[in-house]
Design a protein around this nucleic acid. Structure first.
Lengths: 334, 334
DNA sequence: TTGTACGCGTTATCAG
DNA sequence: CTGATAACGCGTACAA
């Protein structure tokens, strides 16, 4: 199957390549007649303009890069990601953009991947998901004037394009909710400390408490297993009314660990998570959680990036989406 | 931030562009001296070769396309996908390929997307995930001589590049397993009938039974909700020992429906699924399921496609991966 | 060992 | 309204 080019179409239609190009981008006013000729030739020959060549001359790829700033195994295992990936993919497609995915097995390679995409000219801009703290990729992006949007991450830097939820506030409200329910010994199983999300949710947790007992805070990986293990340890050392977990994965591990340690959940101990993974509703007891509107976040991020790329005098903004406590069986109150 | 090109590097290093090109692809034997000069210039100027231009001349994109043949919402919601996506992403990256994602809100657009990617020259080949039956995209790919690999799908066509598990066999074995456990009234909640996976697993189910009772088979969407509803209906109409579900999502819905209808699972009724989603282990009772090695399938698929693209006399093969029954609490036997 | 010249397939500019 | 022509940035025969 030979690839046919604009020249062959031109020849077949007895016009010049430029005319064909014009017809296809229906830009200029071309006579009805030649239009028809060209379109006929296009269809007849099964011509499809080559995106690469087009990109080379227009200096645009019509492609968005998506960077997962956790190693792939972890990123995809976390139910948080599918939702956001889905919405970004949908919006991109709607707006005529392709989506280039980057991830890697090596923790620190992803930022390199992001820059590569941009430098090599494979994408017009990138969306960066939930990064760790203290990386300077953002500065590099700014310095190079590369279009980008951050998702799920708070920074000291202001005035950068970002879609986020207020994790401090969300966590604060979660704890207040639990206090109102009558719980007193409120433990918190956080995620890895180098992640902003962990830090912020811990901040909100602390802020909502009258007195802060460090022994009630534990750190887990982003996994069921981590939640399970930290809960085992925690329950062996402390008396606890309720465990608030950094996300629903961890919460589900905590739930099972508590159950396996002989606790009746929620009678003996309550559990609460973050994110509202689909899974949260299916657990027994179903899990009270703080819903993060991931689909919406993905949509906003994709739309913002596309606007940054296409609209000359728009350079992004800060969008904070609001969270919502979804009350289920795991926190009936005391 | 101006983009610097090979010419500027050449000028800076006082050589010709071709020399720079050669150094960067360290192809030819270039003198040590000029090598150094060039590399220094490259570093000094921060040069990165433009992938688009390179693609245009080499006629290679070093990019793989991944087509999700379900609408995005559904595809990403299914825990089956993250695993396979993850492994495909990892392998691609390892082998120096980028990954272009296609999905859409419209059911029937995805095949169009696949062909677009190829025709427009954005990718060197595509991986097609679990398609429905009766679509002719495969024929089109073959006719056009486009490199592709199918994943999770069986066809009448032979001799096409595919990575799959034997769904008929897996389902057959699952039912045999249940029979051995002492269950007799074995219901099957299948997926949408137009999917090959639904058809095949139903075939295996039938094959393993002495007598086939159509009233025990139900069809659900690929969702928790579907499993829930079909189970409600089923239990209202039939007496059932165990429900085998097309996947773990559906099974988890079935589980909850049974519980909410007053059944004690697994004492009153047993449940079994397919896929071994991470979630399956966290349910209560934990779910017996047929593990599909999704990560391995993704790896194989990516590797095969890359081989097809890069090795001239390799045109793919059929790889069948084996499944495994993971026995958990939901099927203790009678 | 290195430089020159051409071409990849398209769009944009400039005539006409 | 349409056709040459030049460029986009790079790789590669061919020549030197």
């Amino acid at each position: 199957m030979k690839k046919i080019t604009i020249k062959e179409v031109a020849k077949y239609a007895e016009v010049s390549p430029s005319t064909v190009s014009r017809v296809l981008s229906n830009d200029y006013r071309i006579s009805e007649e030649t239009q028809k000729k060209v379109r006929k030739a296009v269809k007849k020959l099964g011509y499809h303009p080559n995106a690469i060549a087009r990109s080379l001359v227009t200096q645009k790829t019509k492609t968005l890069g998506l960077i997962l700033s956790r190693p792939a195994e972890e990123a995809f295992a976390n139910p948080f990601f599918p939702g956001i990936l889905q919405s970004i993919a949908s919006i991109s497609q709607e707006k005529g953009f392709s989506l280039l995915l980057a991830s890697s097995r090596d923790y620190h390679k992803e930022h390199e991947e992001a820059l590569k995409m941009l430098r090599y000219g494979k994408v017009d801009g990138v969306i960066l998901m939930a990064s760790r703290v203290n990386d300077d990729i953002v500065k590099q992006l700014i310095n190079n004037n590369y279009p980008f949007v951050l998702v799920g991450r708070s920074l000291e830097l202001n005035e950068i394009p970002i879609v986020n939820n207020d994790n401090i506030k969300a966590s604060y409200q979660a704890v207040k909710f639990l206090i109102n329910k009558g719980y007193e010994k409120i433990a918190f199983i956080s995620g890895p400390q180098e992640y902003v999300v962990s830090q912020d949710r811990e901040k909100g947790y602390k802020k909502a408490l009258k007195e802060y007992n460090p022994a009630l805070v534990r750190y887990s990986g982003f996994s069921y297993k981590g939640g399970y293990r930290q809960t085992q340890i925690l329950l062996g050392e402390q008396e606890v009314d309720v465990i608030l977990s950094l996300d629903d994965m961890i919460a589900s591990g905590a739930l099972r660990a508590a159950q396996n340690s002989g606790y009746d959940v929620p009678r003996d101990i309550a559990i609460m998570g973050f994110n509202d993974d689909p899974m949260a509703a299916y657990l027994k007891p179903s899990l009270t959680t703080v819903r993060i509107p991931v689909v919406k976040m993905g949509e906003k991020a994709a739309e913002m990036l596309i606007r940054i790329i296409t609209e000359k005098d728009y350079s992004g903004e800060e969008i904070i989406v609001s969270t919502e406590i979804i009350e289920r069986e795991s926190t009936p109150g005391i």
